[in-house]
């Protein structure tokens, strides 16, 4: 496979995942702003921050408003994490690697692109928002489904999966990083209304409310949320889960190609860390510092993969 093709596959799936993550963040923000008691648009500042879009938003807007934030996250082409920009970029990369995709995957991707283009051609009003977000997630979900149903399990699939899980892990880590303080043990705030809202924000951002309840029961405990999102092996968006998926695909690549690179060493180390850590130790180490170090590891891993598999000249 061409290095360029590996690069295109990796980014196609990263951007698809990003489109989904951003749409989930918008949904969460919208939900919170409808149900919270107080006023103000604080929630949108933190949503923008989680999406990594706060800085660029501030450069072009005076104040953080609900409408402004939603449009920036949904439609702005100047915001590379917006749903529209992400789907566009996924399609562009898909065209680049068209020969590596099955026709079902390509057609699903193309349909997702056309759907999104149509749905986001104009500003999306409050009333249409849930339906539009649902439609976009459905159409990107079809790409994933076609990928699972029709692609050979070879290096093409490996790069697609690595892109997906690196983006996903990165997203979960950023959600935690922005909200880490909510999860810290605090004498005063425990049980208060604000906390409940914040915790819910976190769980909703990763579509993890139902899963959490099943795994940990009705009581929402900050420590359990951290355990759930960082170390839980069953939660498909937890950091550990994402890292172990990447490890799996990188080791398939290593055995296919008959050689290991820097990236295998990187991911082995990261997964070993997750296996040996427990949540108490993480809190002792400092949740924020811990997440920062994980984000750093993901970044290094991404660069090692680029080098090992010759994405660029």
């Amino acid at each position: 496979m061409l290095g360029k093709t590996a690069n295109g596959l990796y980014w196609m799936y990263r951007y698809l995942e990003r489109a989904e993550n951003t749409s989930r963040l918008i949904e969460t923000g919208q939900r919170i702003s409808l149900t919270r008691s107080g006023s103000g648009d604080d929630e949108w500042t933190s949503v923008l921050q989680t999406a990594g879009a706060l800085e660029s938003y501030r450069e072009t807007h005076d104040a953080v408003t609900r409408d402004g934030a939603i449009d920036w996250l949904l439609r702005a082409l100047d915001n590379p994490s917006s749903v529209r920009a992400s789907v566009n970029a996924a399609r562009q990369n898909g065209r680049l690697v068209r020969t590596a995709l099955t026709s079902e995957v390509w057609e699903a991707l193309n349909a997702a692109y056309m759907d999104t283009k149509e749905a986001l051609a104009r500003k999306v009003g409050e009333r249409e928002l849930p339906a539009v977000l649902g439609r976009i997630r459905q159409s990107t979900g079809l790409v994933r489904g076609a990928t699972h149903g029709t692609m050979l399990r070879n290096d093409i699939f490996d790069f697609a999966r690595i892109g997906t899980f690196l983006e996903r892990g990165d997203s979960t880590a950023r959600i935690l990083d922005v909200k880490y303080y909510v999860l810290l043990p605090s004498v005063n705030a425990v049980g208060s209304n604000i906390d409940n809202v914040q915790w819910e924000t976190i769980l909703r951002s990763v579509s993890g409310r139902g899963g959490y309840k099943k795994a940990y029961g009705d009581q929402i405990v900050p420590r359990d949320i951290a355990q759930y999102l960082i170390l839980d092996r069953r939660m498909p968006r937890s950091l550990y889960f994402c890292a172990s998926k990447i490890k799996g695909n990188l080791s398939y690549l290593a055995s296919d190609y008959g050689e290991k690179g820097e990236s295998q060493a990187c991911i082995d180390k990261l997964v070993r860390q997750f296996m040996s850590h427990d949540i108490e130790a993480i809190f002792d180490f400092g949740l924020h510092e811990y997440i920062q170090s994980i984000l750093g590891s993901f970044g290094e891993l991404g660069m090692a993969i680029e080098r090992d598999y010759r994405f660029y000249e």
């Binding site: 496979m1 093709t5 590996a6 068209r98 020969t99 598999y309």
Partner: peptide, 29 residues
């Protein structure tokens, strides 16, 4: 891309290629 796909061969651009050891080589993974 259609023809490359249908023939089952790589679709390359100039920046995937390089002359080395007297041959034209493509940068693969």
């Amino acid at each position: 891309s259609f023809l490359a796909d249908q023939m089952g061969v790589e679709l390359v651009e100039g920046n995937d290629l390089r002359v080395m050891d007297g041959r034209v080589m493509m940068r693969t993974t």
